[in-house]
Design a protein around this nucleic acid. Sequence first.
DNA 1: TGGATAAATACAAACGATTGCATTCAGCAG
DNA 2: CTGCTGAATGCAATCGTTTGTATTTATCCA
Lengths: 331, 331
Amino acid sequence: MEELAKVAGVSVSTVSRALAGNPLINAKTRARITDLAAKHNYQINENARNFRLQKTNVIAVVLMLDAKSEQHTSDMFFLEMLGAIADALSVQNYDLLLVNSPMTNVLDIHNSRIFRQSDGIIFIGQGNQHDHLNTFYELEKPMVVWGSNLPDRRYCTVGADNVVGGYLSTKHLLNLGRKDIVFMGDINMPEPKQRFEGYLKALKEKSIRFDKHLQIDVPFEMSHASEAINDLLQQNVSFDGAVCCSDLIALSAISALTESGLRIPEDVAVVGYDDIALASYSSPSLTTVRQNIVQGGRILVQKLMAQINGDTVTDSVLKTELIVRRSSGAW
Amino acid sequence: MEELAKVAGVSVSTVSRALAGNPLINAKTRARITDLAAKHNYQINENARNFRLQKTNVIAVVLMLDAKSEQHTSDMFFLEMLGAIADALSVQNYDLLLVNSPMTNVLDIHNSRIFRQSDGIIFIGQGNQHDHLNTFYELEKPMVVWGSNLPDRRYCTVGADNVVGGYLSTKHLLNLGRKDIVFMGDINMPEPKQRFEGYLKALKEKSIRFDKHLQIDVPFEMSHASEAINDLLQQNVSFDGAVCCSDLIALSAISALTESGLRIPEDVAVVGYDDIALASYSSPSLTTVRQNIVQGGRILVQKLMAQINGDTVTDSVLKTELIVRRSSGAW
DNA sequence: TGGATAAATACAAACGATTGCATTCAGCAG
DNA sequence: CTGCTGAATGCAATCGTTTGTATTTATCCA
């Protein structure tokens, strides 16, 4: 910048202001300086800039993976979300610091490099750490959480509309004439819980009474879904539809059902959640609920930037849509 | 640090040296200072430090996603690799700057923030940019590439042993008595090409002549694998085994075969690649080739650190193993 | 033309660490 | 007691920006 000032015949401060678009500087000089900067391929030293401005230009993204579930939770979901956030951040000239190690307690972050070395934090998921997140919020570090609107929540969340998601998929099956619909998802977790709400709402609209045997706590990853289905079949619980909290659960259920000789969707219609790539290519292809992940990432970033600028922010609930495919969920 | 110097009754430079473990400083003073630092919960300003040292402490990780293939390339593979790298970097106190936007030309990086704002770059995959990567290497930026040992390569690579991977999976099928084995993978891409080499090697060992109709260029993502299988069936090409370059291809092939009334693995035995989570849970569960991704990430980081420290580094080829599961690949 | 006012630019001090060189101090030999 | 030596510590410059304040230059009206 010093050299640039020399060739432009002005002082460093003028160059600095010119490049920053400061109105103090005469429009003509500013134009001249920016031209020169371009010609000489001047690149600002972001390090010095950040140092001076006391900011890091880094946003930490914490994947709230469950240590128990072998990190597989929703698979593609994390990568897609990460990509969406990375894109949105790079537009704003922010870097993404990825925090991958399983967090048993988010408060540990307070004394870590993650805290000092970032201007804000995005948590992807709430895990079971709602209370810790609430405490974390008091540290006054800009933060935003992808998740659902839990009661007594102080931090800002962005999330898909899980109630609607559950409602739409259940209603889809009901409209197809299905009566006994299994709900597969762990309602102790925030998001499945809200989808279950939607499920109940759809049943109620059709005046169908909920049979508590039809709700099964399966984790997002798929390993236990097959067993759960087999248990149901053994107990002679009869059902003709299944609303699943992830595509993996759905695929696993379908495979268990098929192995038991049931036809999909004639005997049991199945609906998934997430619309992972596999959903459309699997056979039978899967009717599922899509969350707009790209939009989600963009809004997460936008809310965080607002906080960094000192604005107060409100929660955001994204539209959620049902993707109807021919085979598994009938049509 | 200034305050710390005050309470310790020494100068800032002494504190700096003490904390850096500089032997100029008396062991006793050093101990006293580090104790005080801990007690007062002193955290160094990495920003200032990096500024002074002219380094960023950031490593850029470039996902070489193919723009055409809708970024789905190998799905879980990227996330797992990313996680492994993030873990390895955080041990070294480095941040990970994620570069997600599809790269049509890696040389564009030279004039971007990614270049200035990082101490080194990890490319995950080579895409079809081998030559550009070679040119990039001349820029003298520390770099390392996850990929295969292409001819005329100047940059350093770390990769799984694709020849062995192709060899093992083919041999597995041959040992089960299969004779006509389809190879599904685009041999214009570096990695499938090497796997194909291994495939040929295994055939040769059993003195089986390769029929060129049995090799099909399908991209990693799965959409075209079903069609390819259907084409084969229509052309009455007979085969009793399939070596696939990704699990997604394998799953897609299985579903196409099943729909055509063929039994897996009785009529056709299928082997995948990658060992994605779905491979073990799908039905039939998938015999596949596993690359040690965690180790891969660790070695990538290690090689890059060596380069940053001015050492010269050599390539690295990781062990690759076959995961045999009961159903799809027979046993 | 002079002087007040406004616009444009320059000066210089920060930001928080590192590091070459100067300085202090203790120990010791002459 | 002086002078020398080496170990331990302090001084001060430096990295490349930004920004409050001082200064210069231009503008305009009486």
